[in-house]
C-alpha cells in the first residue's frame, strides 16, 4: 500500500477548503449554471445531517412523557406492567443484546472463514461468484427471512437441532426448558444468516489490506497456508476483523421484521434460548399500532435507545476498521 494513497488530515482539510474557496470565486464571477449546481449539491449533502437531526429531535420530543415519568432508570428497569403503566427498557435491551451477540458468535467464524477463502484460496473466477453470492444474501428482504424463519427454519431447529443440543448441554440454563413455539434461538440463527454478508464482506476487505509482504515472510519461513493465515495474516488484521464483527453486531441489533416474526415478542428476561423474548425493534414493530396513552412515548424512547445503541456500535466498528486500513504498520517505517 503506497503512503500516497491516503491523504493526511491536513491535506483533506486543505482540499476541502480549496473546494469551498472555488465555490466563492465562482459565485463572484456569477456563473449561474455552476452556482445552481453547487447550491443544489450542497443541499443534498446537508440533507443527510438534517434528516438525522430531525429523527433524533422528533424521538426526543415525542418521548417526553416517558422520559419525565421514568427518568434514567428507564434504561435498566425491567418492569413491564400494562395495568400500572410501568415500563422499562431493560427487558428489550437485554433481548436485543443477547440475540445480537448469539448471532455474532454464530456468524463471525463463518464470515471470517468465507473471507479467508475468498482472499487466500479461491481462484479469481470463483472468487467473483462466491463474492457476489454472499452479497446477494444481503439483498434478500428482511420480511422474506422472517417468513422463511417462521415456517421453515423454526420447525427444523425445533425437531432436529434443539433435541441433540439439549441432550448434551441441557444442564446449562440457556439450553434447558422447552422449545414450544417460536424462540430466541431461531431469531438468533436468522439474524446470524442476515449479518453474514456484512461480516464476510468487511472481513474480506480487511484481509485484502494485509500486505503480501507479511504472507511472503511467513511462507518463506516454511509455513503452510494455514500457518501463514493464522500466524501472520489474522494477527495483523485482528482489529479490522473485530471491527467487521462489531458492524455485524450493529446490524443484528437494529434488525426488525424478521425478528418480530420469530422471537415471540414476549417481554421477559428469558433464561433459556428456547424460550421467547423481545428486542427493542420487535417491541416497537409489534406494539405501535395499538399504542395509546403512555405506550407511544415509551416506544419513542425505546427508539431513541436503539438509535443510540446502533450508533455507538457502528462508530466503534468503523474506527477499528479504519485503524487497520489506514494505519502505517508493517513494512518499512523510515
Amino acid at each position: 500500500m503506497g503512503e500516497a494513497a491516503w491523504p493526511s488530515l491536513p491535506d483533506c482539510f486543505f482540499i476541502r477548503r480549496g473546494v469551498i474557496l472555488n465555490l466563492f470565486k465562482r459565485l463572484r464571477r456569477g456563473n449561474l449554471g455552476d452556482n445552481i449546481f453547487g447550491f443544489v449539491v450542497l443541499l443534498f449533502g446537508v440533507s443527510i445531517l438534517v434528516i438525522m437531526a430531525g429523527i433524533v429531535f422528533q424521538l426526543w420530543l415525542q418521548s417526553a412523557p416517558s422520559r419525565e415519568k421514568f427518568g434514567w432508570s428507564f434504561l435498566w428497569s425491567t418492569a413491564y406492567d400494562v395495568q400500572r403503566q410501568n415500563y422499562g427498557a431493560g427487558v428489550f435491551i437485554y433481548g436485543t443484546l443477547v440475540t445480537a451477540f448469539i448471532a455474532l458468535i454464530l456468524a463471525a467464524p463463518v464470515g471470517v472463514g468465507i473471507a479467508a477463502y475468498l482472499v487466500e484460496i479461491a481462484p479469481r473466477r470463483l472468487n467473483r461468484v462466491v463474492g457476489s453470492m454472499v452479497e446477494l444474501l444481503a439483498a434478500v428482504p428482511s420480511i422474506v427471512y422472517g417468513l422463511w424463519g417462521f415456517y421453515a427454519l423454526n420447525p427444523f431447529l425445533r425437531d432436529y437441532i434443539a433435541p441433540p443440543l439439549q441432550a448434551v448441554l441441557g444442564w446449562l440454563p440457556p439450553f434447558s426448558g422447552e422449545f414450544v413455539g417460536t424462540s430466541v434461538f431461531t431469531a438468533s440463527v436468522v439474524l446470524a444468516i442476515m449479518i453474514l454478508p456484512t461480516v464476510a464482506a468487511v472481513s474480506r476487505d480487511v484481509l485484502r489490506a494485509v500486505p503480501d509482504a507479511q504472507r511472503e515472510a511467513m511462507l518463506a519461513l516454511g509455513a503452510t497456508r494455514w500457518e501463514m493465515f493464522s500466524r501472520a495474516v489474522l494477527p495483523y488484521a485482528k482489529s479490522g476483523v473485530l471491527g467487521a464483527a462489531i458492524l455485524g453486531l450493529g446490524r443484528a441489533a437494529g434488525e426488525t421484521m424478521a425478528v418480530t416474526f420469530i422471537i415471540g415478542n414476549n417481554p421477559q428476561i428469558f433464561k433459556s434460548l428456547f424460550g421467547q423474548g423481545a428486542t427493542i425493534a420487535s417491541e416497537i414493530a409489534a406494539k405501535w399500532q395499538e399504542a395509546s396513552g403512555l405506550t407511544l412515548p415509551v416506544l419513542m424512547e425505546l427508539g431513541l435507545v436503539l438509535f443510540a445503541i446502533t450508533i455507538i456500535i457502528n462508530i466503534s466498528a468503523r474506527l477499528l476498521v479504519m485503524l487497520l486500513v489506514r494505519g502505517p504498520r508493517g513494512g518499512l517505517r523510515a
Binding site: P211, A213, Q214, E216, A217, M218, A220, L221, R231, A232, P235, Y236, K238, R329, G330, G331, L332
Partner: peptide
C-alpha cells in the same frame, strides 16, 4: 532455502 526480502517485513504484532 530461506529468503530475505527487499523491504524489511517483520511481523508487527510480535
Amino acid at each position: 532455502v530461506g529468503m530475505v526480502f527487499q523491504k524489511p517485513n517483520p511481523f508487527p504484532t510480535m
